[in-house]
Design a protein around this nucleic acid. Structure first.
Lengths: 204, 204
DNA sequence: TAAATTAGCTTACAGTTGTACGCTCAAATG
DNA sequence: CATTTGAGCGTACAACTGTAAGCTAATTTA
C-alpha cells in the first residue's frame, strides 16, 4: 500500500475512532455532528467528505464493525463451550466480558437497533440475525426442536440477552453480576419452557 | 377555572399534542427542536417558555402521560382476564390493541427507555416498574413463586412484551398478528420454564 | 374602577450546523 | 522528469438553533 493510501486509511480510522469515543450513556450517534467528529479527529470539517458521503455512511461503517465484534464473540463462546460446562452460563459470561471491553460498540448496536433511521435498524437487525439463526439451528440440532419453536426460542433468548446488555452498560461491576445471574435464570426459563412446549406438541 | 387558566391549559395541550404528532418511526423526541414544536402548536417560539422550562420538561410530561396509558392498559387487561380465558393471550391482545391506538405514546416510552437522558430513562423505568412488580406479585400469589423467581420471570415477560411492541410499531396488521402469536409462545415458554425451575427448588 | 398580572408576540443575537468552492502541495503516474 | 491526482485546508454562506428583552392587551385582583 502506497504512502498516500496508508495516510488516508489512518485518517479514516481516526474518524471512526473519534465517533466511537464520543459515544457514552449521554451521547448517542445520532446526536453527534459531522463537525464534532471532525474536530475530535483533528481534521477540517470539509475533509470529512474525503472519507464518507455523510454521517450516515460513517454510522453504517460503525455498525459493521459492531457486527464483526459480535461474530468474534460467538466464536469465543463456542470455543469455551467445547470445553464443557453450562452453555448458558458460558454464553452469558462471554457476552458480559465482550460488552465490558467494547462498551461503545454495543452502545451503537443497542441504540440504533430501535433508532430513527431505517437503514441503521436494518443493518443492526442483519447483524443480530446471525445470532438468532445460529442459535435456532443449534437448538434444532441438539434438542430436536420444531423450526417454529426453535425460532421463537432463539429470538426470546437474544432479546433477553441484548436487553440485559443495554442495562448492564451503565452498571458497576457488582450490579452487573446480579444482572448476569438473573439473566442466566431467565434464559434457563426459556430453555426449560421450550422443552415443555416441545413435548406437548410431540405427545399428540 | 378562569378564562385565562383555561386558555393557558389549551395552549399547553397544543404543545404536548404537537410534540406527540411529530413523533414517528423516523423522528424521535430528542430530534425535535423547541421551535418545531412551537411552530406545530401555532405559537411563537419564545411563548414555549410560558409552559415548560425547556424541551426536557415537555418530554417528561409526555412520559408521564405514557405511564397513564400503561396503567389504563393494565386495568383493561385485568377486567378482560376476569371473564376467563388464557391470561397470556388476553394480555398480549390488549397490549397490541392499546399499542395500535397510541403508537406515539409507545414510541416515546420505548425509545427513551434506552435514550441518552438519565432523567428520561429513570422516568420510563419508573413507569415500567409498575408493570413488573404487579406481574411479580401476581405470580407469587397465584403460582406460589419464590420472590426471586417471580421477579426474574416478571422482568423476562415485560422485556419480551415491550421488545415485541417496539417491533410491532412499524408493522402492518398481518405481520403484527404473526408477531403476537410468537410473543404468546415466548411468554408461555417463560411461564412453563419458571414453573419447572420452581419445582426444582421445591424438591430439595 | 384602578392597578397588577401574565400569555403571547416581535425583534434581536450569538452560536452551531452542513456543505459549496477553490487552493495547496506531496505522492503517484507514465 | 513532467504531469496528474487527491487529501486536507480555509473561507464563506445560508439555515437553523435556543433564548434574552421588552411590548401589548386582556384578564384578574383589590
Amino acid at each position: 500500500m502506497g504512502i498516500r493510501a496508508q495516510q488516508k486509511e489512518k485518517t479514516r480510522r481516526a474518524l471512526v475512532d473519534a465517533a466511537f469515543n464520543q459515544l457514552s450513556a449521554e451521547r448517542s450517534f445520532s446526536s453527534l455532528s459531522l463537525r464534532e467528529v471532525a474536530r475530535e479527529a483533528n481534521i477540517a470539517p470539509t475533509s470529512f467528505y474525503r472519507h464518507f458521503k455523510d454521517m450516515n455512511e460513517l454510522g453504517l461503517t460503525m455498525v459493521d464493525e459492531g457486527g464483526l465484534t459480535l461474530r468474534q464473540m460467538m466464536r469465543k463462546g463456542r470455543q469455551r463451550a467445547e470445553a464443557g460446562g453450562s452453555v448458558i452460563r458460558i454464553s452469558v459470561d462471554t457476552f458480559m466480558e465482550v460488552l465490558d471491553s467494547n462498551p461503545n460498540v454495543f452502545r451503537i448496536l443497542l441504540h440504533e437497533r430501535s433508532g430513527t433511521s431505517a437503514a441503521f435498524r436494518a443493518a443492526v437487525a442483519r447483524e443480530i440475525e446471525h445470532f438468532i439463526s445460529e442459535l435456532a439451528h443449534y437448538t434444532e440440532a441438539t434438542a430436536g426442536r420444531t423450526p417454529m419453536l426453535a425460532r421463537a426460542q432463539a429470538e426470546a433468548l437474544v432479546t433477553l440477552v441484548f436487553n440485559a446488555g443495554a442495562s448492564a452498560l451503565d452498571m458497576k461491576r457488582a450490579d452487573r453480576k446480579v444482572l448476569a445471574d438473573q439473566l442466566v435464570m431467565q434464559l434457563r426459563m426459556v430453555a426449560k419452557g421450550a422443552e415443555a412446549l416441545q413435548h406437548k406438541v410431540e405427545h399428540r
